[in-house]
Design a protein around this nucleic acid. Structure first.
Lengths: 343, 343
DNA sequence: TTGTATGCGTTATCAA
DNA sequence: TTGATAACGCATACAA
């Protein structure tokens, strides 16, 4: 494998000139640069990674820690990892994937050995064991997701509260007076990735602030869980004419099946909106309006923040990604526009 | 961050003694070793990765290339990546994850820059574009999966043909005379990861060699595809009393739903076996007997082969992982044991 | 059993 | 505009 000496020899210059020509950190005459470029091509030269790390004090590698929990939705999980990898490549960075059983020790290891320049922490839980480690590290780190106590950390996440408000607004603006939220299974709220809480509170609060009747239900365990929850919501209070689903794909699919089974048409009898979904709701039947959770949005931002931290010291903060609404025709005005409850 | 000089100073020895004490490549007196160990602990010393790579000519990093195709089953995909990572850690290796849009160029890059010592190629397709690159690389590589032309390559995979035979044998041994194979959607056979072909041919051939009537059906597109295929198999010929499913989880789930819908009990009316499945069939209803596709089996083997290639030159070859059958009670003798077709 | 010294391939400082 | 050279941190051949 050719090294910088070979290139220098072929181009008839010194190795420092080659280095500078390639890094662009010093001006090099046109003629010299051309000779170097052609030598590089001729030899198929690519700088040796180890040499570069050692001298440059940059490894061009980012660690990604992404635990695969029992209830992790694999497609989304993978999408986030890949989104980080793709974003990292734009800065000429590669990613080193840490496994769950090495969550904390792996972080210690790759940072102490200076294998990585920065860390992206995916799928952050409220009481995540990785957080304390991260806090005590001098290696720039960014969390995708917000832990219980984000002080001193840099975090990126979808603005779940804004998404919740946007959901409520979308239904309210369409004329609905009673809406339901189909949430995650109870376990999610208990073990707690805090996004579930944030969404629920903001949704109920904002819906009520807009004068809507708002109900919440969690799918119980078992195959009928989602169906039962849907029934509850549709029959609760004034009977929801708008439904927001903030849960996994399989649950949303089951909910839709229940709705069809009940003979309700979408959006004729019921308007449905899928919130913070990391899957493709446009291929559902019917296609669902959605406020998507775009892996690339959060991950691009996370990687950019690590890069910023690498160049200067950027202050720890929480960066929220604005939600976007995409219509596929599953939200419409309610068939019968009821007068306000008690007015 | 402490370096080897710091450790040497604190322990009162030379850096080479520290290096040898840690690598174990030279004997070190008990007393000296203890002093070094305590200095290491005191300073929290971990060898600098770049320094080690440069001097040792080993990066302790493996590249993993795992394209996420449109029809990739994400949970299995992720399971394989993690299995490689876990296996690699046992050899003190980390993994660098290459993205699909960098499939070939990424391989060139990480090998030319000597960033990785070896490569694990996951989800190999028959006409995989990565294969030609791999062939021209001097970096040890192992494919998990078998391409159309494996000559000159080292590959690891489940022995799909043995799995197919084991499937047929299991049903034949239970007394079934007519069996059906629910395969993958047609697209899989066309685009061709060749495992699907291998399984189908071996299954049909072996079943017939054992005197069974054997039918094959592919699920068509759309939600009813799997159900229709199941119907076809159950009604074909003598009517299959044993069903082998070699397809994705969602298709198997739908097939089971269809079977229940038809009022058939498992294994009373129909014996069912899930073949080469990377998901948990014990939580299906009913739990399904399975010949699992264990990511760890293939990946452990793949990593071990890369390590072997790193130490000596091991010859390219195909290594087949033996299939294993796990019973969950979904295969039983047929209710009515028909006499052999024409005997 | 231990120490000295060289080289790995690059970046960056200091000279020219 | 370019060149010589000193780090960077470690592994290992060679000495003792």
């Amino acid at each position: 494998m050719a090294n910088i000496h070979d290139v220098a020899r072929v181009a008839g210059v010194s190795i420092s000139t080659v280095s500078y020509a390639l890094s662009g950190k010093r001006s090099v005459s046109e003629r010299t640069r051309e000779r170097i470029d052609s030598a590089v091509r001729e030899l198929g030269y690519l700088p040796n990674a180890a040499g570069r790390m050692l001298a440059g004090a940059r490894t061009q590698i980012l660690a990604v820690t992404a635990p695969l929990r029992a209830d992790t939705y694999a497609p989304a999980h993978m999408a986030f990892v890949l989104a980080v990898a793709t974003a990292a490549r734009r800065y000429d960075y590669d990613i080193l994937l840490l496994t769950e059983d090495e969550a904390t020790s792996g972080l210690q290891r790759v940072t102490s050995s200076r294998l990585v320049d920065g860390i992206i922490v995916l799928d952050v839980a409220i009481d995540d064991e990785r957080i304390e480690v991260i806090r005590n590290l001098s290696t720039p780190s960014v969390l995708v997701g917000i832990p219980g106590e984000p002080a001193g950390l840099t975090c990126v996440d979808l603005d779940f509260e804004a998404a919740a408000r946007l959901s409520a607004d979308t239904l309210a603006d369409a004329g609905h007076r009673s809406v339901g939220l189909l949430g995650h299974p109870a376990a999610v709220y208990e073990r707690g990735s805090n996004f579930a809480h944030r969404f629920r509170s903001a949704f109920l609060e904002h819906a009520r602030a807009r004068g809507l009747e708002a109900a919440f239900a969690m799918p119980g365990p078992g195959p009928a869980g989602a169906a039962d929850a849907v029934d509850t919501l549709i029959r609760s209070g004034a009977g929801a004419t708008g439904l927001v689903m903030h849960c996994e794909e399989s649950l949303q699919t089951r909910a839709l099946a229940r709705i069809a089974e009940a003979g309700l048409s979408i959006p004729g009898d019921l308007s449905v909106l899928s919130a913070c979904s990391s899957f493709d709701t446009s291929s559902f039947s019917p296609p669902l309006d959605v406020i998507p959770l775009v892996a690339a949005d959060s991950c691009d931002s996370a990687v950019a923040l690590v890069m910023a931290a690498l160049e200067s010291r950027s202050e720890p903060h929480v960066e929220l990604v604005a939600p976007r609404f995409t219509s596929h025709g599953s939200v419409a005005p309610p068939r019968v526009s009821l007068p306000p409850a008690a007015a």
